[in-house]
Design a protein around this nucleic acid. Structure first.
Lengths: 126, 126
DNA sequence: TCAAGTGTATCGTTTGTGTTAATACACTTA
DNA sequence: TAAGTGTATTAACACAAACGATACACTTGA
């Protein structure tokens, strides 16, 4: 379900968070679906339960999942996270745009960058 | 000439590097101009000479300045760094674009983001 | 009721990074 | 030659992040 990349320098919990978001936003996990338990996934990935718990906490914080103590974690309705997810992406992009603009990149160059990226086939790095 | 922000969580040497790039790209420092000596700037900013040296090493690495041992550091000709600077900005933008695209952001949304950012007055955060 | 499964909280260890410090060396210029 | 310059090395410290071990609290179902 999820494979960790130990060559990746990002923290493990962040990898788990990101890949889980992919599964949710991509539709592989549907609203209401139960996530693997903290302990189970920890064993599967050979990491500490805390690492999984931290990832799940982040997912809950951002509304992707909800937690019922003693029962488990479940995927939220898409209405819970869809708009926040989108505005998060826009915010991420906007921040970098401000940086590169101040660095001297022109609007034309930025627009060209966008078209170029979207013209390319989707990489789907997994 | 340069003021460090200790509330900023980024490392000091990175702040020095960035602000020096601003001075150079912005034209406040002209090609051929002599930079403050490692020791002088260290005293001015009340930091260790190593911190400045690290910043200068990065600037030289990226072609913004050149070093003459025993004499000092000087701003390079803009032809040395202009293209590298631009492609660096494009690369930075491209990387984020790939991320947000995979996150589900559409091309139209990305283009709108660009126009919005460039429509806004330049912040000039210093 | 109680065992098993679940999430939660706390604490300590480890690791990496940034920074400072103290020196020593090599080069250039006046 | 003295003073100023960049460079290199090593050690030490602080701090935050990441991770792990462990104990606690809740829910469910036999």
């Amino acid at each position: 379900m999820i494979i960790l990349d130990y060559r990746d320098k990002r923290p493990l919990y962040e990898q788990v968070t990101e890949k889980m978001i992919h599964l949710i936003v991509g539709g592989a996990m549907q609203p209401g679906d139960k996530l693997p338990s903290v302990r189970n996934l920890a064993v599967d990935l050979s990491v500490n339960p805390n690492t999984i718990q931290r990832a799940y906490a982040a997912l809950e914080q951002d509304g992707y999942i909800y937690t019922i103590t003693g029962r488990g974690n479940y995927v939220s309705e898409s209405s819970e996270w869809k708009s926040a997810h989108d505005s998060g992406l826009e915010q991420q992009l906007t921040q970098v745009l401000h940086q590169v603009r101040q660095g001297g990149l022109t609007e034309a160059q930025a627009l060209a960058c966008v078209r170029k990226v979207y013209a390319a086939p989707d990489a789907e790095r997994e």
